[in-house]
């Protein structure tokens, strides 16, 4: 399964963080560096397994918690309706 970010959500880079603006909900969100990587992979071309690997590689970590972090971030993006249905 892959994930796709909503096209109408505006993403703005600010230093190491990414700000997302949802114009429909009229809310802004701040993504930390991990969530930022995951957001960039919500392009319809990456599975969750591929995201786990990408995060491990990006942060050069072998920690087993990566998959939980990725799952948490995807749940969060889904809960706040920032992904396409």
């Amino acid at each position: 399964m892959t994930y796709v970010s909503r096209k109408d959500v505006r993403a703005t880079e600010v230093e190491q963080e990414l700000m997302l603006h949802d114009p429909i909900a009229k809310k802004v969100y701040v993504l930390n560096p991990t969530a930022r990587v995951i957001w960039s992979l919500c392009d319809g071309a990456h599975t969750q397994t591929q995201m786990n690997e990408a995060v491990r590689s990006h942060f050069q970590t072998t920690t087993l918690d990566v998959s939980q972090d990725v799952q948490n971030a995807l749940n969060w993006l889904r809960d706040y309706q920032l992904l396409e249905q």
């Binding site: 600010v14 230093e15 190491q16 963080e17 701040v30």
Partner: peptide, 8 residues
Amino acid sequence: MSKLTAAI
């Protein structure tokens, strides 16, 4: 705080 969080 990060600049972005502080600004918001």
